[in-house]
């Protein structure tokens, strides 16, 4: 596994554990051409980064997971994932995962700046990179919530 992909997995585990007190378990991982075809489905938090490491990270949520996480954090169940608290949480979690991953790559000399998070929603959000040599798709299981989370990352390292 490329170290960027490894750091992404570690970042997801760390952020969910620290901020939400939830254990997440990686259940599948694919890189490069092995990444499943098809678009992302649901609400997607994305953060781009640029510098010695350039790329973007995408975290995909279904409505059930997005609402459960929001309820866990603020103590009240949102009526739907259109509530601003839900999109705010998805954006901030994506921001923290990207930051944690980037902090780990920076220790190896690959630093970069983070852009503010962007939230998208759709049934077939196709994300492809034409020039990122590093790409990975990860599925995580969240046993306590009986939910799954998909995280995709594209990255390019500058010498």
């Amino acid at each position: 596994m490329h170290f960027v992909c490894d750091f992404t997995q570690k970042a997801v585990v760390a952020v969910y554990d620290t901020m939400l007190n939830l254990k997440v378990e990686p259940v599948s991982h694919s890189e490069g051409a092995a990444i499943p075809q098809g678009g992302l489905v649901g609400m997607v938090g994305s953060v781009s980064f640029a510098g010695k490491i350039t790329g973007a990270l995408y975290m995909t949520y279904n409505e059930s997971l997005a609402c459960k996480l929001t309820e866990r954090l603020i103590g009240a169940k949102p009526k739907s994932w259109s509530e601003p608290e839900v999109t705010d949480l998805i954006g901030e979690i994506t921001n923290m995962v990207s930051g944690d991953m980037k902090r780990r790559t920076a220790e190896l000399g690959y630093n970069g700046l983070l852009a503010p998070p962007l939230i998208m929603q759709g049934d077939n959000i196709v994300v492809e990179s034409k020039d990122a040599p590093i790409s990975a798709d990860n599925i995580f299981r969240i046993p306590e919530l009986n939910e799954e989370l998909r995280v995709r990352v594209f990255a390019k390292l500058e010498p």
Partner: peptide
Amino acid sequence: LSADSGKDN
């Protein structure tokens, strides 16, 4: 208090 805790920042 930031996620962007790279050395430069």
